[in-house]
Simulated scan of single mutants.
Amino acid sequence: MTTPGSPRKADGRAARWAGQRERRRREFVEAGLRAIARHGPGVSTEQIAEEAGVARTRLYKHFAGATDLQRAIAERAGELITTEFTPLWDPPGAPRQMIEHAIGAHTRWLADHANLYRYLTRHSLSGHSGTRDVVADVKTAIARQLTTLFERYLARFGLDTRPAEAIAYGVVGLVESSTARWLENPRDLGEAELATLLARWTWHILDDTLRTGGVELDPGKPLPSA
């Protein structure tokens, strides 16, 4: 039996407090995401606190300043993006279907979360020490996955796999920069139209690489197993 004030009871209280503090941090981060969607990328700490239903000073009991809050929001956004894009790495079907599915998911997510994307971009460029650049992280993760996928298929067709990384990063740059600009100035171009254009351009890049190696594919027919 332990006595009042014993180390075991103290450790239990500390663990419960740590768990409660972490739960409250998550709640405030989710409130931050809602506030960004409501108020835009220039959301203030006061607006996040209002969304959470607390005074701003309460936020700072759980975060070491605005930068810590921004970092936590960025980390949560990174988790959401990773979850959204994970199914894209086992693409079924024909090349055209695979490309349209992947690019459609990318442009759709950015269109649906435009304020969050702008918020992440703004804070990644702010120069705040320790603030995670989620946009760069996601682009790198997608490019690496595509590199692996392209290498597998180039090898399957007996082609040089060295260009795979350059192609992957080029495709990611094309899609991300085009969609980012479209968010700011759509010029009466719908999201589905943009995705269709980007999918067509991406296929032309891949088709040129294959044809240079003497391989011609029908983009409407399923690929052989890689």
Rank of each mutant, 00 (worst) to 15 (best):
W109R: 15
A102E: 07
I73A: 04
E75G: 01
D68K: 03
R108V: 00
K139Y: 06
A111Q: 05
T82F: 05
P91L: 12
A66L: 09
A66Y: 09
H113K: 01
R108N: 09
A105E: 07
R96G: 02
E79M: 01
L120W: 00
T131F: 04
G78M: 00
R71N: 13
H128D: 12
R118S: 06
K61M: 12
F85D: 06
R132T: 15
A105Q: 07
P95N: 05
V135R: 00
W89Y: 14
W109P: 13
H128Y: 12
R76H: 05
P95E: 15
M98S: 10
P92D: 11
L88W: 06
V134T: 11
Y119D: 04
E100I: 09
H123D: 04
A66E: 15
Y117Q: 10
P91Q: 10
G78Y: 03
Y60K: 11
T83C: 09
K139P: 08
L59I: 07
R96D: 06
L110S: 03
T82W: 07
Q97E: 13
K139I: 05
R71P: 02
L116T: 14
T83A: 15
N115A: 15
P87S: 04
L69W: 08
E84M: 05
H123G: 06
A64N: 07
A105S: 12
G93S: 01
T107H: 04
P95I: 06
P95H: 04
V135C: 03
R118W: 01
A102F: 09
S124R: 00
D137I: 12
H106V: 13
A74G: 08
I81M: 06
D68Y: 07
E79H: 08
T57N: 14
G93V: 05
W89L: 08
T67Q: 11
E79V: 01
D90S: 14
A72N: 03
T86W: 05
F63K: 03
D137L: 11
V135T: 08
W109I: 02
L125N: 11
R118M: 01
T67R: 10
R132E: 13
D137N: 02
E79P: 04
H101A: 14
L88E: 09
A136V: 06
A94D: 15
A102K: 13
G127T: 01
A102Y: 06
L59F: 07
L69N: 03
Q97H: 14
E79T: 08
H123F: 04
A72W: 00
Q97K: 12
R132M: 09
